[in-house]
Design a protein around this nucleic acid. Structure first.
Lengths: 198, 198
DNA sequence: CCGCTACTATGACCACTGTCATAACCGGTT
DNA sequence: AACCGGTTATGACAGTGGTCATAGTAGCGG
C-alpha cells in the first residue's frame, strides 16, 4: 500500500488522504502531512501553491480514482461474478482493514464532504467528482454482469451510499457488524437486477 | 425547529449539533456555539466543565434521541404504513431540508464519527449510542409493520446506513438525486420483508 | 445586612494553524 | 567559474483554538 518509489509530491497527496480519512480535514495539519510523507516542509508551498485547499482536493481526487480503479480488480478477482459478490468484495476490503488495523479510518471522500462541503465549494466539487469516478466504473461493471443500463447507475449509487453509511456505523460501533449486515441484506436485491442472458 | 423557551444549556447543545452537522467537529468553535445559541461565553465552562468533548458528546446524544423520536412521528404520519413508506419519509425530511435551505448540513452523528472516532473514545461511544437510539425504534417500527423480529434489526441498520451514505453523496453533488435513488431502489426490498398477517 | 449558590463576564495563556518571505542548496549547462 | 531552475530549509507572522483564573452579578433564605 505504501509505495516508496513515488515522488515527494505524490507521497504528500497520499499521506493527506490517509490522515484525512482518519482525523478529518480540519484536524489534519499541513506540517503533519509533510512529516507523515517524509517530505520536507518547504515542499508544501512549492508543490501546492494553492495551499491546503489544493492539497485536500488532490487527495480527494486521488481517493476517487483509487476507488474506481479497484472496481476492475474486484471484478477480475471474483470466481463467480455477480453484483452481490462485487458488493461483498467492496465491503470486504473494509472488514479486512478493520480486522487488521482497527477502526481508525474511514473514507477520505466522505470525510472531506462532511468537513468541507459547506465551507469550500472546490472541495465539494472534488468530492462529487471522486464519487463519480467511483460510481461510473461500478455501474459499468454491473452492466457487464447483466444489469440493465437503465438501472446500473441507480444500483451503483445505492451500493456506494450503503457502503459509506455502513463504514460510518462500523467505525462508531467499533464493530464490523454493519458491514456484514448490509452485504447480506442488500445482496439479493442486487442480484435480482440481473437480467438472464437468455 | 428553534425553540426559544429552552434554557441556555439546552440551547447550546442544540446549537452545537447544528454547527457540527454543518462544519464538522473540529471546525466548530466553542465561542461560536455560545454565540449561535445566544448564550454567554462564561456559561460554557459552567454547564460543560468537561469542555468541548462533553459538549460534542451531548450534542451527538441529543441528535440520536431526536432521530429516534422522529421514527414514531413518521410512522403515525403514514397513511399506508410500510417499510418503504417509512424509509421514504425518513429520506423526505432531508430532501425537504435540502430543497428549502440548500445542502449546507448533514447528520451530526456522522460528522462526529468521521471527525472524532479515532481521536476520542467517548465521542465514538456517544455516536454508537446515538445510532442505537435511532436504530432500535426503527427496528421496532418495522416489526410493527410485519417484519419478522429476526430481520428487523438488520433492515434498520441497512436503512440507516443507506440514508447516511445518500446524505453524504447528496451533499457532495449538491443534488438530492442520491436520496431519491436509494428510496426507490431500496423500497421493494424493504417491503418484501413484510410477512403477510395471514 | 450576611452568606450562599447559580450564573455570567472578561482577560490571559499557550499551543497550534496556514501562510508567507527569504535564503540556502544542488545538479546540470554554458 | 558563473549561472540557473527546481527544490529544500527556516523563521516569522497573524489568527484562532480550547482552557483556565479570576472577578463580578443576581437572587434568595436567614
Amino acid at each position: 500500500m505504501t509505495e516508496e518509489r513515488r515522488g515527494p509530491r505524490e507521497r504528500m497527496v497520499f499521506s493527506a488522504a490517509q490522515l484525512i480519512r482518519r482525523d478529518g480535514v480540519a484536524a489534519t495539519g499541513m506540517r503533519e502531512v509533510a512529516a507523515h510523507a517524509g517530505a520536507p516542509r518547504g515542499s508544501l508551498q512549492h508543490y501546492f501553491p494553492g495551499g491546503k485547499e489544493q492539497l485536500v482536493n488532490e487527495a480527494v481526487g486521488w481517493a476517487g480514482r483509487y476507488a474506481g480503479a479497484r472496481i476492475a480488480r474486484f471484478v477480475s478477482g471474483l470466481d463467480a461474478p455477480s453484483p452481490s459478490a462485487l458488493f461483498a468484495a467492496m465491503a470486504g476490503q473494509w472488514t479486512r482493514e478493520y480486522a487488521a488495523d482497527g477502526f481508525a479510518a474511514g473514507c477520505p471522500v466522505a470525510a472531506a464532504t462532511v468537513d468541507r462541503a459547506s465551507a469550500c465549494t472546490s472541495t465539494r466539487e472534488a468530492a462529487a467528482a471522486a464519487f463519480a469516478a467511483w460510481r461510473d466504473p461500478l455501474a459499468e461493471a454491473l452492466t457487464g454482469m447483466g444489469v440493465p443500463g437503465s438501472r446500473a447507475g441507480a444500483l451503483a449509487t445505492l451500493m456506494i451510499s450503503t457502503l459509506e453509511g455502513a463504514i460510518i456505523l462500523a467505525r462508531a460501533e467499533a464493530d464490523a457488524g454493519p458491514l456484514h449486515t448490509v452485504v447480506s441484506e442488500l445482496g439479493p436485491l442486487l442480484d435480482s437486477a440481473v437480467v438472464p442472458p437468455g
